[in-house]
Design a protein around this nucleic acid. Structure first.
Lengths: 215, 215
DNA sequence: CTCAATATCACGGTTTTCCGTGAAAACAAA
DNA sequence: TTTGTTTTCACGGAAAACCGTGATATTGAG
């Protein structure tokens, strides 16, 4: 018999953490070394116990302090030998894309059955990545739809001005705050309006609010 | 020894369901009769197997088809003897309030530890309701903060005009659409601005978006 | 019925936004 | 180093929003 695999689990919801632990405790080939509620806790552990061989980190995406995406990136940068499996509530195309680009070894949804979870873990521990058909499909769709979206990107200043505009400041007030000419701010207004494809202040404000740009 | 308690668990996330099942399987005094992914499944089961004695239904709030709040209400209406324990991701004051008013027997967050879950289940099965101190506190705060909010109410027309304003229509355009004078729309603008305590179009738009007035 | 809230309309004046058109300097990427 | 993006500034005119200060008619609740 081989030595059991060592894994770490990170999820901010205790109950889910306990549940996962309980499921995996039944597996003789798996040793749960640590359960954590934030990405930082996991990283801290890995940095201190460098001699301990960890095979896999299972992580949620949504966590306080350091989320699963960041944690995955950090692990891949500092401990490239450690495999990662991301488990998430939502099937977020963008995050999945980022994760695949950051070499995560697997991604499954919390909608997945216990059987699929075990299958994913086994695949990854054997050296194969695991992305369910459903996830692959979402990824593909995101690729195509991404092309239809012209991907509006705003510069730092543009973002800064837009925020202030949406916060009910007038052109003059913004100019004063940023120590710029009011003509400059007017330029930004115009650019933003054409760039974002809106008609007026209402459109600008709506964009800012919907993109969550205001605190 | 008493006969074990019969419980049903409902949660749309398989993995959580499996986890919970795994945790509770360790308890000899608990028999898991059914696990379901929607509230309707649970209700259907209860209606068919009326002879089977169910002690407790553990349910998530966020589920497709029929959520935990509705499920709780339905159970309390049709099967008042069955106890309910609601488990939720978020600590939503409004929903907690509704649930307590609908006589749910307990509410715990998924942030809760396994120990608290077991404590809640035991309390409820022994006939006592269980709401954690944290939940009680949130409930209290909601009560007070509800009173402090002056509750701005807009008339039908005001709402209608505000929606159009936030959708980038000008005063003249709105007047044309509603077959009103532009002066009338200007009056509404003024009233809305003072009523909502904002400075300009940006504030109006922000209010509309944040209140979810625009589909 | 009465009173308050709602809905409608009006005008003149000020401020702000919107539009077109242009351009120079700084900076980063190729 | 050339090229593209970002940041900065300028002017004039048109359009729209904002402000104050009204008024009248309808309507719904008490």
């Amino acid at each position: 018999m081989n030595t059991p695999f060592s894994i770490i689990i990170a999820d901010d919801h205790s109950m889910f953490l306990d549940g996962l632990t309980s499921i995996l405790a039944e597996e003789k080939s798996i040793n749960i070394i640590l359960t954590a509620k934030t990405g930082t806790q996991v990283l801290k552990y890995l940095r201190i116990n460098t001699d301990e061989k960890i095979d896999l980190v299972i992580t949620d995406i949504n966590m306080p302090e350091m989320d699963g995406v960041e944690l995955n990136a950090a692990i891949k940068a500092e401990f490239p030998k450690i495999k990662t499996l991301v488990v998430s509530m939502l099937e977020d195309a963008k995050k999945i894309k980022i994760l695949t680009e950051a070499n995560a070894n697997g991604y499954i949804s919390k909608n997945a059955e216990k059987a699929e979870l075990l299958k994913a873990i086994k695949s990854i521990l054997e050296g194969q990545n695991y992305f369910s058909p459903r996830i692959k499909q979402i990824l593909m769709e995101a690729m195509f739809s991404a092309k239809s979206e012209p991907e509006i990107s705003l510069s730092k200043r543009e973002t800064e001005v837009l925020k202030l505009i949406a916060q009910e400041f007038t052109t003059q007030e913004i100019a004063d705050q940023l120590f710029l000419s009011k003509h400059t701010i007017e330029s930004y207004r115009k650019n933003l309006i054409s760039k974002l494809g809106v008609r007026n202040l209402a459109g600008l404000t709506r964009y800012a609010v919907e993109k969550g740009m205001l605190e």
